[in-house]
């Protein structure tokens, strides 16, 4: 069996700080097959972005302590020399950033920026690179690509800019596309367009896509598998359908409750009480325990590992209730006194 396209194995990223190491990612394992989309969901600071910046080896300036393995087609990118790593960025992994305006060079025409990507890796002439860049812009659904290529980022709308980023990330036909919250800065209709473009390109080019988002709703429609991250760890992982149909970790329930639902019997959104824990000095036991309405003694005693519950669906909860959450709003949290 060939190795998966991307396999993250027990990844740990600690940033040194005056108060002690910041455990941004703490024992994370994920994998992604070619042609599939992996949705990675979690709130700010859960370690999603750090994980994939580590995969691109773009963290080195902050001098983190990285353990574990990040395998791209079975090759550990963490051990590659810098020169070989440069040949991975671009030709093998493309990356889309959260805010397309700040990720595009403000003083260069967008066509030149895409052409530069080509010329950084391939021995092509200026004119060829430009033609490829215009073609790439057309491929991501930019009308008048020829004219648009000659414009500067500030002359494009948010959706256009993100399409430019996608064109830039995909022009070298990488095997893996990492989209780090590609629609956060965009409005909902444009979000749907951008996700549609990414998904369309995935099926057409057969690439693997990692879609990082802080909203389950964003990944719901396009992801094949979903990983929910909390405080540097995966708390739930599984096929998209299974995670949405039978969410099994209380944090996932909480995330689902924060999504406005059409036609749901409940009209109020329920926030998750409290805020994410300190990553320097995480709480004992389950990281989510202090905010969890279902916690009991065992939760604070040991850190639960991801346990597979069948069908590739795994969660890291001390008390896996069989069949719980089959409908997410059926299981009401216990009253205040029980939680206390």
């Amino acid at each position: 069996m060939s190795p998966p396209l991307l396999e993250i194995d027990d990844l740990t990223v600690h940033f040194p700080s005056a108060a002690g190491p910041v455990r941004a990612v703490d024992g994370l394992s994920l994998s992604l097959e070619r042609g599939q989309t992996l949705g990675v969901v979690g709130e700010s600071g859960s370690g999603k972005t750090v994980t994939f910046l580590a995969a691109m080896r773009l963290l080195e300036r902050s001098r983190p302590e990285i353990h574990g393995r990040i395998l791209l087609d079975g090759v550990d990118v963490l051990t590659l020399p810098a020169r070989e790593m440069r040949e991975i960025r671009g030709p093998r992994i493309g990356m889309i950033f959260q805010d397309p305006l700040s990720a595009l060079h403000p003083l260069l025409r967008v066509g030149d920026q895409i052409a530069e990507t080509v010329r950084a890796h391939r021995d092509v002439g200026r004119r060829d690179a430009w033609a490829q860049s215009v073609a790439a812009l057309a491929q991501v659904g930019i009308p008048n690509a020829d004219e648009r290529a000659r414009q500067y980022p500030h002359q494009l709308s948010g959706g256009m800019r993100q399409r430019v980023m996608i064109a830039m990330a995909l022009i070298l036909e990488p095997d893996l596309l990492i989209a780090d919250a590609p629609t956060t800065a965009l409005d909902t209709t444009v979000e749907a367009q951008i996700l549609g473009i990414i998904d369309d390109l995935r099926t057409r080019l057969g690439i693997g896509v990692v879609l990082v988002s802080h909203s389950l709703a964003t990944v719901a429609d396009v992801a094949d598998t979903v990983a929910v991250m909390y405080a540097g760890r995966a708390v739930e992982r599984g096929p998209c359908q299974a995670v949405f149909a039978h969410p099994s970790h209380p944090y996932t329930w909480g995330l689902l409750d924060t999504v406005p639902a059409l036609g749901a019997e409940r009209s109020r959104l329920v926030p998750i009480p409290g805020s994410p824990p300190s990553l320097i000095d995480p709480p004992p036991g389950c990281r989510f325990a202090p905010r969890c309405a279902y916690r009991f003694d065992a939760c604070t005693r040991h850190l639960p590992e991801l346990v597979e519950r069948g069908g590739g669906h795994a969660d890291a909860c001390v008390l896996p209730v069989p069949g719980r959450g089959a409908r997410r709003n059926r299981l009401e949290p216990p009253g205040e006194e029980a939680a206390a």
């Binding site: 659904g141 367009q193 709703a217 429609d221 089959a326």
Partner: peptide, 17 residues
């Protein structure tokens, strides 16, 4: 049980700017 408020899939050919 399906995800709420999921974005509709989009055919990029129909996207007019």
């Amino acid at each position: 049980a399906m995800p709420p408020a999921a974005p509709m899939s989009v055919d990029i050919r129909t996207l007019e700017s």
